Amino acid sequence: NRKASRNAYYFFVQEKIPELRRRGLPVARVADAIPYCSSDWALLREEEKEKYAEMAREWRAAQGKDPGP
């Protein structure tokens, strides 16, 4: 049972969880929050997504994983 790799979207969703909880939505973990975040993610510009892509690269580097292209 390996841990899933964390991509840019994972970090975006993780950042949104406190806001979703404040709105009273039932989000205990990232998987619960995904349905509420997909439309917001789709509206982000590539420059805005880069922040989360960098977080994912840093996480992979800390895990000793290949950052890929």
Rank of each mutant, 00 (worst) to 15 (best):
R2S: 14
R2P: 13
A4N: 05
A4D: 04
A4Y: 03
A4P: 07
S5Q: 10
S5L: 03
S5C: 02
S5M: 09
R6M: 11
R6V: 04
R6A: 10
R6D: 12
N7I: 05
N7Q: 09
N7H: 06
N7W: 07
N7P: 06
N7R: 07
N7E: 14
N7T: 12
N7L: 08
A8G: 11
A8D: 11
A8R: 05
A8M: 05
Y9C: 06
Y9H: 09
Y9F: 15
Y9L: 12
Y9N: 08
Y10V: 04
Y10N: 15
Y10D: 15
F11E: 06
F11H: 10
F11L: 05
F11T: 05
F11D: 02
F12W: 05
F12Q: 00
F12P: 00
F12Y: 13
F12G: 03
V13I: 05
Q14S: 08
E15H: 13
K16G: 02
K16A: 10
K16Y: 02
K16T: 05
K16L: 09
I17K: 02
I17Y: 01
I17N: 01
I17T: 04
P18T: 04
P18E: 06
P18H: 12
P18M: 07
P18S: 05
P18N: 03
E19I: 07
E19S: 08
E19Q: 02
L20Y: 03
L20K: 00
L20D: 01
R22Y: 03
R22L: 10
R23S: 02
G24A: 05
V27K: 01
V27C: 12
V27M: 04
V27Q: 00
V27G: 03
R29W: 04
R29F: 04
R29H: 10
R29M: 10
R29L: 12
R29S: 15
V30C: 08
A31R: 11
A31E: 14
A31T: 13
A31I: 03
A31L: 06
A31K: 15
D32Q: 02
D32F: 00
A33H: 06
A33K: 02
A33E: 01
A33T: 02
I34C: 08
I34V: 09
I34T: 08
I34N: 11
I34S: 07
P35C: 03
P35Y: 00
P35T: 03
C37H: 00
C37W: 00
C37R: 01
C37I: 07
C37D: 00
C37Q: 02
C37G: 03
S38L: 09
S38V: 14
S38C: 05
S39K: 15
S39H: 14
S39T: 14
S39F: 12
D40H: 11
D40N: 12
W41T: 02
A42V: 05
A42S: 12
L43P: 04
L43N: 15
L43I: 09
L44C: 05
L44I: 04
L44P: 01
L44W: 00
R45S: 14
E46A: 07
E46Y: 05
E46H: 10
E46W: 05
E46M: 09
E46P: 14
K49N: 01
K51R: 05
A53N: 09
A53F: 11
A53I: 07
A53E: 14
A53T: 09
E54L: 09
E54R: 10
E54A: 09
E54V: 11
A56D: 06
A56R: 03
A56I: 03
A56V: 06
A56T: 05
R57H: 15
R57Y: 07
R57M: 12
R57G: 09
E58Q: 08
E58M: 03
W59R: 05
Q63N: 13
Q63F: 08
G64M: 12
G64Q: 15
K65Q: 10
K65F: 09
K65C: 14
K65V: 09
K65A: 08
K65T: 07
D66L: 13
D66V: 13
D66S: 11
D66A: 09
P67R: 14
P67Y: 11
P67Q: 10
P69T: 02
P69A: 12
P69F: 13
